[in-house]
Design a binder for these strands. Structure first.
Lengths: 228, 228
DNA sequence: CCGCCTGTATGTTTTATAGCATCAAAGCTA
DNA sequence: TAGCTTTGATGCTATAAAACATACAGGCGG
């Protein structure tokens, strides 16, 4: 993924801007580089613009009771960051931190409000994106509150596979999170994430080697997520 | 609230349509009457249109593990129902059931897509609404998973007060839910909702008389929600 | 009027998971 | 390389909340 993809890649939200709009967009873009584990913004910050992840991985999380963090979602290249707060005219209600070295493209709020949102195709694409994310969030609320530990962890692993895919071997998750992040994604303590991953490994559902996780039996994992 | 409010009330999402658009809207409206505890739509249904609640109360919930229901949100007059699925071009991912006798206004999908969404003011209002709801949903995910029973129940009571307000006495919640619904809103079993409500009543934070709930000490309730 | 069902109330038991403690391994820095 | 810090692993204990059981009250239909 590169900066060009922001206008030229079908998956980018800006793909269907008119040629004119795309040209103007160029004048409203700036790029920022982030190291691993760097904050992009913090809960309570005022949004500065519309951000697109060009390269890397970012987690968006909220601090809960006693500072315990819950990862709300994770972003892959061409994904949007912090747009909810900007478009909703609110402050950020979660924090964003890079999981690896990342490149983020910042588009001025002015361009979004005065140009992009005047284009109904763009607006509608934003609306669809928000609707989908809202559906996802509602579903997560239910599974995170109702499923048991095994089910929650299995769901998280499936989520990671869906979002980041596999390495060339077809088994290894293309995401190398700490156990703590896996726990924060799955609403459990780090100990329980470690313990349950070990159990899954014993059951040959996955194989673990440090942060490398191989999904050996995706069907079984799916079943654990649904029923466990 | 009446049907007129849909175009004339500032709080309605259609308020800022042009006069022309408002007139055309009249030809795309139909009204439906629902009795108490009637389904408006079910999880998995294809959305039929854009719905606005004119009168009454509706709960939107998802069925989770073992049929246990989690109330995602509740609607008051001029609130939207089922628009997420329509605009996101998905099936409903939750069910809607009336909590009291209700009047619902249905606007054709055709009008929304071909007319309303061509108006950037309307689109942007939808976007803002979605952003706010998404923020709410994310926040709920964290509190429902992390807060303890007392905190979750206190939060639900505050939510009900914010959404439906108080009767003329200034204390009685203008919402008369079953204990089961209160439980499903707060992610707990009915027994625990009953028990915890009793505890709050003993502590003089609230007073209960059947389904009538008086908030006696709103500050204390707020504190319980934050810390408890 | 009586019995039945539904909703509410409350006590007891069981269990999932948080919390804590300890230890090993790995990674980093001086 | 040695020492320090972070991360991962695992056992034990404590506890919040579910699950279960029982009982009572109010409304409804026969």
């Amino acid at each position: 993924m590169g900066v060009r993809d922001i206008t030229d890649n079908q998956k980018s939200i800006f793909y269907l801007l008119t040629q004119d709009e795309k040209e103007e967009l160029q004048h409203h873009i700036s790029l920022s580089h982030y190291k691993k584990n760097e904050f992009v913004f913090k809960e309570g910050d005022k949004p500065t613009g519309f951000m697109i992840l060009v390269n890397g991985k970012v987690k968006i999380f909220k601090e809960g009771v006693g500072g315990r963090e819950q990862i709300i979602r994770m972003t892959k290249p061409l994904g949007l960051i912090g747009y909810r707060a900007l478009l909703g005219e609110e402050t950020h209600n979660g924090s964003a931190v890079t999981l690896e070295e990342s490149l983020i493209c910042n588009i001025s709020a002015e361009f979004i409000f005065n140009r992009a949102l005047k284009n109904p195709d763009f607006s509608y694409r934003i609306i669809r994106k928000l609707c989908q994310e809202l559906g996802f969030s509602n579903a997560r609320t239910v599974t995170l509150t109702q499923k048991h530990i095994r089910g929650r962890l299995a769901e998280s692993l499936i989520l990671l596979a869906d979002k980041y895919g596999y390495e060339h071997d077809g088994f290894t998750l293309r995401a190398y999170l700490s156990r703590e992040d896996i726990a924060n994604l799955s609403n459990m303590t780090t100990s329980n994430a470690i313990r349950t991953l070990s159990t899954f490994a014993n059951e040959k559902v996955i194989a673990i080697d440090g942060r490398k996780i191989k999904i050996l039996d995706a069907n079984r994992l799916e079943r654990i997520s649904k029923l466990g």
